[in-house]
């Protein structure tokens, strides 16, 4: 199972990446040995025997040229196809993956579970359950890397990136930042703890009194920021109704259409003038500086949860 000089295989994808790795290692060894071998054999066999020796001319051989173009091409295409298939699997998180929110900042990882539980530089995850990290950065570029899971994803300010894995082995593993981010870059490390599903639940519940679930935090923000003053389903509302909007197409004032996804909602909070919904005036002020990245994620989670059938006046929706 464990190959030398490699971290433990602790996720569903680790084994398939190691398999490709071993395949390319084998190819590398073969061709390195071939080239070294040819050079060594020829160098000894055809060493210069007298100072004025002049060997006969050999111009080339088209058959050989074709051979050593086509064979490496075929071999490399097998790597390409295999690597791409595995990568596509890796790049598409399963629908039922549990979301965890990650915000990187110089020089720590701030993590929040949907139940509201927070941790810093540590990540607790359940075993045998797909987990999707939704990540962004407050300042510079970072990159979230768990060698034992063979997963890595850049964390980019102003964007959401996602990374998913399914842990298969209990234990604690390294968490590294791999995109250089300044002075304490090498200190931006932590541990990923894989727990059994029961232990994970128990862990989530410890100190649960202090935890507010993420959508509820979003709802509280929605209230304190007075979003509902404009964003309500009343007939004369100044802002578009947000109920059931998540994932749906939105018609913009300039005639184009966008999908109301995380990126769109984030931008609408921070730079509302950029994408004004058709039929509404560009009245909304920017909330840049008033909400931090974690709070924006909470707001998005709240909006995500608003069903079309939700109570018409969100001001009264205290128990969604």
């Amino acid at each position: 199972m464990k190959i030398p000089f490699s971290p433990e295989q602790a996720s569903t994808i680790a084994g398939s990446i190691d398999a490709i790795y071993l395949y390319i290692v084998a190819v590398t060894i073969f061709f390195t040995a071939l080239i070294y071998g040819l050079v060594a054999v020829f160098a000894v066999q055809y060493r210069r025997k007298s100072p004025d020796e002049v060997p006969g001319a050999i111009h080339g051989h088209n058959g050989l040229e074709i051979t050593w173009t086509v064979i490496p091409l075929i071999i490399s295409m097998t790597m390409f196809i295999w690597g791409t298939v595995v990568f596509f699997h890796y790049a598409r998180p399963p629908k039922d993956a549990q979301e965890i929110f990650v915000v990187g900042k110089q020089w720590m990882w701030k993590i929040q579970h949907p139940s509201g539980k927070r941790e810093i530089n540590e990540l607790h995850v359940p075993i045998n359950k797909p987990v999707r990290l939704k990540m962004t950065s407050e300042d510079v570029l970072h990159s979230f890397y768990i060698p034992a899971f063979r997963v890595k994803m850049d964390v980019i300010p102003g964007r959401y990136s996602s990374l998913w894995f399914e842990a298969t082995r209990l234990g604690s593993y390294h968490l590294f930042c791999t995109e250089y981010c300044g002075t304490q870059h090498s200190g931006m490390i932590g541990k990923v703890h894989v727990l059994s599903q029961e232990d994970y639940q128990k862990w989530l519940e410890t100190g649960s009194a202090a935890n507010t679930p993420v959508p509820v935090s979003g709802q509280e923000l929605f209230k304190t920021l007075n979003c509902a003053t404009c964003h309500n389903s009343g007939s004369g509302a100044l802002g578009p109704n947000l109920n059931g909007i998540y994932g749906k197409p939105v018609q913009l004032a300039d005639g184009s259409t966008v999908t109301a996804d995380d990126k769109y909602i984030r931008r609408s909070i921070l730079k509302p003038a950029d994408q004004v919904v058709a039929g509404y005036a560009a009245l909304m002020p920017s909330y840049q500086g008033q909400v931090n990245e974690e709070q924006i994620m909470q707001l998005i989670e709240y909006i995500k949860g608003l069903k079309e059938t939700s109570a018409p006046a969100p001001a009264s929706a205290t128990e969604v």
Partner: peptide, 18 residues
Amino acid sequence: LTGLFLSTMAVDVHVHDT
């Protein structure tokens, strides 16, 4: 030849920036 590891997307995910 070690460049091939980095061209292979799935392996590059693991070894990128290491």
